[in-house]
Write a protein that binds this DNA or RNA. Structure first.
Length: 804
RNA sequence: GGGCCUAUGGUCUAGUGGCUAGGACAUUACCCUCACACGGUAAAGAUCCCAGGUUCGAAUCCUGGUGGGCCCACCA
């Protein structure tokens, strides 16, 4: 058989994608007797297309999935899409040019669901295209009925366990999206702003100056803080200050949190400028003065500034202060403010009704659970613990949005009692459905809860969501805890942590035995890729240009957990690998055309040499893969293939396979046996990394002899033929060969040019030398080779003289 | 400010106590050698971030510093 001259990656990759799908190569078998290996696949968010970071970390988890499959595990590798929440709402609003707030919830939700159906196949295809070997028939979306049912059931369970409560509390609020957001949904944004020095009157007559970037919160001022050690002002502690444009007086209090260096050294305490203000209110038991509405407009408590939006109010307050001569100065300031990451709007802190999961009392347990999980790499656990130790707030799970899993409760119209949905009626939409029973007070009139659940409240249940698709099967009970959670390091603090929390409450168990944490793909200068910086790379273009294998080959180049700067030229390495293995296979298959899988009576020593090296490589690669160190496997297998196999072994074996009449049948057969097993083993070692080219070559030749219908269902290689003596002979061989090549290169001669005479000295026996002599003569194109055995105590291992 | 990680030829990296510090990309020279010129052979290129320390011996371990990354906190 002969391979085409060139490998067409695009054509080939598309072909095998179809084949894998048609042949159900990655199908999980729930009835299998084999040990299962379950993966809690991260569901990517449909609101954004696959970016390079995705292809990086999903490739890395796929290496592991493919390896586990090849060592015989029944791999449970589901695929889901995360498509509820604010991000999706914004995408749909943009796509369809609508405003969710202005529509009936039902209509907007239906529009979202319908649109998602349209875009989902294309979206998922990107993951298939990079070769993610998930079983796409084990599919969920975080908004489908199945997920909603599980998410609402989780809510009910926690409610019954007294872990959920509803409370009016100050919380981070986005006035643009008009919803509470979590701390993790905020990001920093740099702003040029003004630091306004305002003069307040005090009851001791003299004025004090307060510096602020938020003068518009003046009507919400509830106290003035001074550091007790601040000699300039501490005499004023206990006195009162008058709020301009009002009759109110506030206390001047001592507060050690005040930074004496900042501004004037005096802080005005508002409702609520930041989380410190919230803390101080609680500590000092001061009543808040809430001047902001949910849309960021000042209300009647703001007095004459009522009806203005914060930005306008800021100008108005400054102007009014100027008119009363209350501005000492205004300094430009460049500072960092918190904005909502989705819309870049400055966040506010508002007092609203929210649902919380109470868990601050369980920090120690969560840390304990974290230590039961095996972390790869281990140091990532520190981030998890660091986060837990710093937790200050319970988990706010309610969002004032439309498109999410509804919070399954109603309020009795008469007695205000909270009625929670029953499990058998899930999923439920309290705005459309009714409770199954009447209220204790006898009333049958209810108000449905409008809020929906935070998207993390659902995605923290991915193990349950995936596994419950097999609820009726015997395997169901064996899948928890799952074997692996693969994900990137940026979401340890929420997705990973939240999943542990849910598993703790619902199963009293860790969700998975291990977690592998991927790093990030960075831009060529080691910076984070982001749309705003304009340094994002589209993986689809890279695949088109270089192939998915090349992208994966690159992704395998970083150690697990390490970030990797992306340089387009690095993808060339992967395409070169494909070309090389294509050509090496072409040669090998050509010489295996008359090979019938028989084993020779006696293997040539050089063949034993490479098979011994191969045995060691396989052993190491297996161990590395067991520890999720795929990058070592890739590195070592690639090096072995290129340098050991191609540069040296193929050159050595040529004489025997080309010239049977001269070298004898056994010599050829020994070579064929070695070629077959070495190349097949290399293919298999690389199959998890570059699944397409290895499948192509497996199908072209090896499939005829190996039983598996795909290389990805074939057995992981095993070879146990370590022979140190043969390795010594092989190393001697390679050294002589290198010396001859060097000599020719220095004389600018072709490698084909015959060599008159070689004198080779080494620490091998004459018998060993004689066993490699014919191969050595042919490979070096020497007319004559003399050998001299060096004593063991000789300083040099080898000495070679080449006469050209 | 706190936590974690990281620093190796121009670039990306391998290497956790002893090797002439390995490889890839890029560079230079030569070679159309019967799998491959999308190739081969060879060459050049690294005071292993800096300063101390431990050790017979440090790229590797410890301390401090500097640079980079991520997460968290702060940002009146």
């Amino acid at each position: 058989m002969e391979l085409p001259k060139r490998y067409n990656a695009n054509e080939s990759e598309e072909k095998w994608l179809k084949y894998w799908e048609k042949e159900k190569v990655y199908l999980f078998n729930p009835d299998s007797k084999e040990e299962a290996y379950s993966i809690d696949t991260p569901p990517p968010t449909v609101s954004g297309k696959m970016h390079l970071g995705h292809s990086f970390s999903y490739s890395q988890q796929d290496f592991v999935a493919r390896f586990q499959r090849m060592i015989g595990k029944n791999v449970f590798y589901p695929f889901g899409t995360d498509d509820n929440g604010l991000a999706t709402e914004r995408m749909i609003e943009k796509m369809k040019n609508v405003k969710g707030q202005k529509m009936e919830r039902k209509d907007f939700v239906n529009l979202c669901l319908k649109t998602l159906e349209e875009i989902r196949p294309d979206f998922v295809y990107d993951w298939k295209r990079i070769g993610v070997s998930a079983d796409y028939s084990i599919f969920y979306t975080t908004i489908n009925e199945h997920s909603q049912r599980i998410s609402q059931r989780s809510f009910i369970d926690l409610y019954k366990k007294d872990r959920i409560y509803r409370k009016r509390a100050p919380f981070v609020w986005c006035p643009e999206c008009q919803t509470a957001i979590a701390q993790v949904e905020m990001k920093d944004s740099e702003r040029d702003s003004r630091l306004v020095y305002m003069k307040f009157d005090t009851d001791v007559g003299k004025q004090i100056t307060i510096a602020t970037t938020r003068p518009e919160l003046l009507p919400a001022c509830v106290a003035i803080h001074i550091h007790p050690d601040d000699k300039r002002f501490n005499k004023l502690i206990g006195k009162k200050a008058k709020i301009p444009f009002s009759d109110r007086e506030v206390k001047i209090t001592a507060n050690k949190d005040v930074d004496m260096e900042f501004g004037s050294g005096i802080v005005y305490h508002c409702t609520y400028g930041d989380m410190d203000d919230v803390k101080w209110l609680e500590e000092l038991k001061i009543e808040p003065i809430e001047i902001l509405n949910k849309d960021g407009i000042l209300n009647e408590k703001a007095g004459k500034f009522k009806g203005l939006h914060v930005k306008k109010a800021r100008e108005a307050v400054i102007k009014a202060l100027e008119e009363e001569n209350r501005i000492e100065k205004i300094e430009p300031i460049h500072h960092v403010v918190n904005v909502h990451e989705r819309c870049e709007t400055d966040i506010e802190i508002l007092n609203t009704d929210q649902w919380f999961i109470k868990y601050l009392d369980l920090k120690a347990d969560f840390i304990k659970y974290g230590r039961k999980i095996k972390w790869y790499p281990d140091h990532m656990r520190a981030r998890y613990e660091n986060w837990i130790e710093g937790l200050k707030w319970d988990w706010n799970i309610s969002r004032q949005r439309h498109f999410g899993v509804p919070i399954p409760v109603w309020y009795c119209r008469k007695c205000n009692e909270i009625i929670v949905a029953e499990e058998k009626q899930l999923p439920v939409d309290p705005l459309a459905d009714k409770p199954l029973k009447s209220c204790k007070c006898g009333s049958n009139e209810f108000i449905g809860e409008k809020d929906v659940l935070d998207t993390w409240a659902t995605s923290s249940l991915t193990p349950d969501i995936a596994i419950e698709l097999f609820k009726d099967k015997a395997v169901y009970k064996k899948l928890l805890p799952m074997d692996l959670r693969p994900q990137a390091h940026d979401i340890i603090t929420f997705w990973l942590f939240n999943t542990v929390v849910k598993s703790y409450f619902h199963h009293q168990s860790i969700p998975w035995k291990s977690t592998m944490i991927s790093g990030w793909a960075l831009d060529p200068h080691g910076k984070k890729m982001s749309k705003s910086k304009g340094n994002v790379v589209d993986p689809r273009e890279m695949i088109k240009k270089y192939s998915a294998d090349a992208l994966r080959f690159w992704a395998a180049g970083s150690r697990l957990g390490d970030d990797l700067p992306f340089q387009e030229k690095d993808l060339i390495t992967g395409t070169k690998f494909a070309t090389k293995i294509w050509n090496a296979s072409k040669f090998t298959f050509m010489h295996l055309s008359d090979y019938k899988s028989e084993k020779p009576k006696k293997l040539e020593i050089i063949d034993i040499w490479i098979l011994s090296k191969l045995s060691k490589l396989i052993k190491e690669s297996t161990e590395n893969f067991m520890n999720y160190e795929y990058s070592h496997t890739k590195l070592e297998a690639d090096k072995f293939f290129w340098h050991m196999f191609c540069d040296n072994y193929l050159e050595i074996v040529k004489d025997r396979v080309y010239n049977v009449e001269k070298r004898g049948k056994n010599g050829k057969l020994s070579g064929q046996y070695t070629l077959y097993h070495t190349l097949l083993s290399i293919m298999k070692l690389m199959a998890p990394i570059t699944p397409f080219i290895t499948e192509e070559l497996y199908q072209q030749y090896f499939k005829k002899y190996e039983k598996a219908k795909s290389i990805h269902l074939s057995k992981w290689p095993s070879f146990d033929m370590v022979d140190e003596e043969a390795e010594k002979a092989g190393e001697f061989f390679v050294f002589v060969l290198q010396q001859v090549r060097k000599a020719k290169s220095e004389q600018n001669l072709s490698l084909k040019k015959p060599v008159k005479r070689i004198l080779a000295k080494g620490k091998i026996t004459l018998e060993q030398f004689n066993a490699i002599k014919d191969d050595l003569k042919a490979t070096t194109t020497a007319e004559e080779i003399e050998f001299e055995q060096l004593p063991e105590n000789n300083e040099m291992d080898y000495e070679v003289v080449v006469d050209l």
